[in-house]
């Protein structure tokens, strides 16, 4: 059956289901909003629906790549890990059951394991008590430079965290998973997740504290929310 839809990076336009109505599609084969849930898409991926697979990629590739990039610190490795994640995801899509974790959580769990494996192979983990080396720049002349310097400082501090503390922060702060989902993705209890988050935040604060006045001074008197 010819699929009346086009796929591009902006979305799956006019997504028409190539399956019959027994697959869950509305009559006429058009994907309805109810069909557009991750759960419905995964069921279709298990049946070889190319468009459903594309929709999952478009919906979650940013989150997977973002996590991999923060964990691995470089774009090429992050892209490889993202591809590996989706490969593993598809190969097990038929085993996914709706009563389990959310699809995004499942994907991020696969991505987290892929990243941890790569980091172990690299042997690149940095000890928690070694603060990041921050560049000793002259005071930034303008706001843009100041912002760049702040960004570099925070990136360095994040990169210096032990991998599981960094992973917990990425899952909770950047990917905004719930506590239960983040614990599931990390394969730990909620209590263990909270311990990782608290230690990660303390380490970040310790890493940034020496440069806080310098880096965030401009903001301290303006927006106190980003002053440390």
């Amino acid at each position: 059956m010819k699929v009346a839809a086009s796929i591009n990076v902006r979305g799956v336009a006019g997504y028409a289901c190539p399956q019959r109505t027994s697959s869950g599609c509305a009559p006429g084969g058009v994907l309805t909003p109810a069909d557009d849930s991750d759960e419905a898409l995964i069921a279709r991926v298990g049946r070889g629906d190319r468009l459903a697979a594309s929709a999952i990629v478009l919906r979650h590739s940013d989150a997977v790549l973002g996590l991999a990039w923060r964990m691995l610190g470089e774009r090429a490795a992050a892209e490889d890990a993202t591809q590996e994640t989706f490969l593993k995801f598809w190969s097990s899509a038929g085993e996914w059951r709706p009563q389990g974790a959310r699809v995004k959580t499942w994907l991020l769990k696969i991505a987290a394991n892929a990243c941890l494996d790569r980091l172990r192979r690299r042997g690149r983990e940095v000890a928690t008590d070694s603060p990041p080396e921050l560049a000793d720049h002259a005071p930034a002349a303008d706001e843009k430079l100041m912002r760049e310097e702040r960004r570099a400082a925070v990136d360095a501090a994040l990169a210096a965290l032990p991998e599981r503390q960094r992973l917990a922060l990425v899952l909770c702060h950047y990917e905004e998973l719930s506590q239960n989902d983040a614990a599931e993705a990390l394969n730990v209890s909620v209590e263990a997740l909270e311990s990782l988050l608290a230690r990660g935040r303390r380490a970040l604060r310790a890493a940034l504290i020496e440069r806080l006045d310098e880096l965030f001074m401009g903001e301290r008197h303006g927006r106190s929310s980003i002053a440390l």
């Binding site: 590739s61 960004r151 970040l204 002053a227």
Partner: peptide, 19 residues
């Protein structure tokens, strides 16, 4: 303040070519 600092970190998103 730490929340704000975390939000200052580089945002890593895939470009169109990668997708």
């Amino acid at each position: 303040a730490l929340d704000g600092a975390l939000s200052e970190a580089t945002s890593h998103r895939g470009d169109d070519a990668f997708k």
